[in-house]
Structures are given as structure tokens and as C-alpha cells.
Amino acid sequence: MTPSVAHDHSPLLTVRGLARTIGLRKLFAIDRLVIPRATAIVLTGMNGAGKTTLLRMLAGLEPAPGASAQWTDAHGQAHDAPLSPLPPALRQRIAYLHQHPYLFRTSVRENIAYGLHARGMPRDEIARRVGEALGWAGVSHLQDTAPEYLSGGEIQRVALARAKVLEPELLLLDEPTSSLDGHAREQVIGLVGDLAAEGRTVVMICHDRELINLPGVVRWKLGDGVLDTHHP
């Protein structure tokens, strides 16, 4: 699916009733969360505030009982459905990248192709997309390499390519540079900037000042059970 165009000002996704309680503690309660199109968003907050839980709920990786999602499809048709389980139409539009990505015990090329095979895409289209993603992430020379021989930065770039190749409209990234330093960190920051510049919506948990200060980045802050989407 191609990225949403920047001049479409309708929300990419609206989620209502998003809440999580752990024991007697209310982690967060968000009545209405509007995720805009073509926007790079940094989600900050103290450790334990629930940032990862929030992203995983949006990605359908954790249950979100009582929450609902509203969105408009490529044909302009409005949809309203429970967020959990994540509707297939949304699953096709969202990609989630774990802080420590897991790669399958096969080649880099097959890792990137995995989601396309799962969607039943023709082999020639898979080959084209994977080739482009390998080049974009700067890992073409590693395409036949097994994950255990990759550095931390290379694993992160392969994981970003595996997400990008699915052409999601919403990318949810959990601390994409947290375990990296030096040149590896700079490479990943560049790729995240590319994704945002393409017109995709990127929501990333992050404390990296360089990512936070990328041009046009919007800052959200989660704390004391409240999500502030107008944080300076």
C-alpha cells in the first residue's frame, strides 16, 4: 500500500477507549487517540509509564479490551471496529519493530521476504521489493548471511527493511537506536528519517535527542496515566 499523501488531513487512525490496568494501578486511560497521516511522532515518558504497552496494543500484539478503531480505507469507506483482535485491514497497514528485533534463522534476504510470502505475493514482485529494501537499508552485501553473523546495527537495519517492504502506513518503533552507538546509530537514524520523509506515519518510543530533533517531529509524552499529544 502506498503512503498516504500529505495533503489528506483526515486522521490515519482514531482509537477510542484505550486503557490498561495492572493490578490496582491504572497504567493509562486514553479516551481518544488521533494518529495523523504523514507525521513523525516521538513518544517519551518515564520508564514504566506504559509506552511499549501502548504501541503493542496499537499493533495488535497485546489485547485492548473495550477499545475501538475508526479509519478510512483507500476507497474512502469509513470503518469502525473493535481494536482487539486487530482487524485484518489494519494489520495490513501497521508494522511494529521491537526494541530487540528477532530475525528468523535463515538468510537476511528471506527474513525481509517473509511477510510478503505470507501475503501470497507473486515471486517476481517479492524479488523486486526485497531487492529495493536491501539496497535502501545498505545490506545488499549481507543478503545471504545468517542473522547470527550480523552486528546489532545490521540487525536493526534488516528489521527496518523487513517492515518497510510491507509498505505500511503506520510504523511503530520501540527505541530503534537504544542499543547502538557511533556509525550504526547514525545509519539507523538516517533510515528512520527516510521513512518519515516518504509520507508514512512513524510513532517511535525514543530518548535519542537526534531522533527527537529531526525536522518536523511531533512529541507525545505518556505519564501519570495520561497521554499528552501536544507536548512541546
Rank of each mutant, 00 (worst) to 15 (best):
P36R: 13
W71A: 06
R162G: 13
I35G: 01
R16T: 07
H183D: 14
H79M: 07
A161C: 14
I189D: 07
G120C: 08
L27K: 07
A29P: 14
R128A: 12
P232Q: 12
L18K: 02
H9N: 03
H98A: 12
P176G: 02
P101C: 07
S10V: 07
G216S: 03
L43E: 06
D80W: 03
S140Q: 13
P36F: 01
W71G: 11
L86R: 10
L160C: 02
L222P: 05
L58D: 06
W220R: 05
G152E: 00
Q70P: 11
V108I: 04
L134D: 10
F28L: 07
R219N: 00
E167H: 15
G50I: 02
V5N: 13
P176K: 06
Q92S: 08
I189R: 09
I212T: 13
G120A: 03
A38H: 05
A133E: 03
S68D: 15
V203W: 02
E62I: 07
P36V: 00
S151G: 04
Y102D: 14
R93V: 09
A29V: 07
M1I: 12
D194P: 07
V34L: 04
R185A: 05
G153Q: 10
I126G: 06
G23L: 02
Q187E: 10
Y149F: 14
H7F: 05
G190H: 04
E210G: 11
D73Y: 08
L103M: 02
L97V: 06
A64G: 00
A89W: 00
Q92C: 10
T177H: 12
R20W: 13
L58E: 12
G193A: 13
L13Q: 05
H7W: 11
D124T: 11
G23R: 12
D224G: 01
P63C: 13
M204V: 04
M57W: 05
H7A: 06
K51P: 01
R119D: 05
A133K: 08
